[in-house]
Simulated scan of single mutants.
Amino acid sequence: MQPGAYMDVAQVTLYVFWIFFAALIFYLRREDKREGYPLVSDAGGRRPVYGIPTPPEDKTFLLRGGKTVVAPARQNDRGDAPVAPTAPWPGAPYVPTGNPYVDGVGPGSYANREDVPELTLDDQPIIVPLRVAKGITLDPRDPDPRGMKVVGCDGQVGGTVVEAWVDRAEALIRYLEVEVKGARGTKRILLPLPFALVNRPKGYVSVDAIRGAQFADAPTTAKADQVTKREEDRIVGFFGAGTLYATPERSESIV
């Protein structure tokens, strides 16, 4: 060093912090591309778009029970989604060409998760009906939806609540089991509680997402007392699709 020269420790620390922070952003930006990439361009033959930085190399994660999963996961990629653009230019919105309630498009989109139930630490299904959840009851201060009619956004009755499904880990209701009468007979479906409003004074459950007649088309579970992760996504996707497609007016612009 030259005589009289000195090191500004604060400035050096600031530069080190800037370098560290830039490297952290670069690392996190790559890691978050393990989900949802590559994007697909609407123009030029639907080419993949990776952006900067490029996605990281594949990484294998060890799961509970000895299973492994590789990320980025590509098994959920869908190149044949039943949708079509409303206009020929890039960025035009897409509209469903099939049944939006089951095709998994728009607000009804879902991922093909494992067809197994979510498990507790002792390997028991987390979400189960009250008839199976021993030791769990509804608080008498809260409204008991069992026996109430379920009414759709058009005011028509879609079914009757026969049971509540609870989350053993969180100690709250996740679904209402609804008995529905349709053209093919009677079946039971699961209504996600966030889509339901339990009206105790009027004695019914209102659902704004779908019409009364559409409850008969809702997905069912393979087992009477168990719901898998894949079934959950498709059930929620069905009601989510109704928020946009239940009536023609919902898919129109506000102004």
Rank of each mutant, 00 (worst) to 15 (best):
G104R: 13
A213M: 03
T221M: 06
P129Y: 06
T247F: 13
R250D: 05
I52V: 13
G104W: 11
D122F: 00
L138I: 15
V83R: 07
G79E: 04
D225M: 06
G66S: 14
T54I: 04
V161N: 03
V157W: 02
L193T: 09
G135Q: 06
V178Y: 05
R47S: 05
Q156Y: 00
G212H: 09
I173Q: 13
Q124L: 08
D42G: 12
A196C: 02
A10T: 08
V102W: 11
P125Q: 08
P100C: 08
R174I: 08
W165I: 01
R174F: 03
V69W: 10
P145A: 10
D123N: 07
Q156C: 00
G158C: 08
P55W: 03
Q75E: 09
A71K: 13
N76W: 12
K187M: 05
Q214T: 07
W18S: 02
V162Y: 04
P145V: 11
Q214R: 15
N99Q: 07
D115H: 09
V150E: 05
P90A: 13
P192G: 08
L24N: 05
G4T: 02
G98E: 08
G91F: 13
L176G: 04
Q124V: 07
T228L: 04
W89L: 13
Y175A: 02
I189L: 04
D103L: 08
A111I: 07
V162S: 10
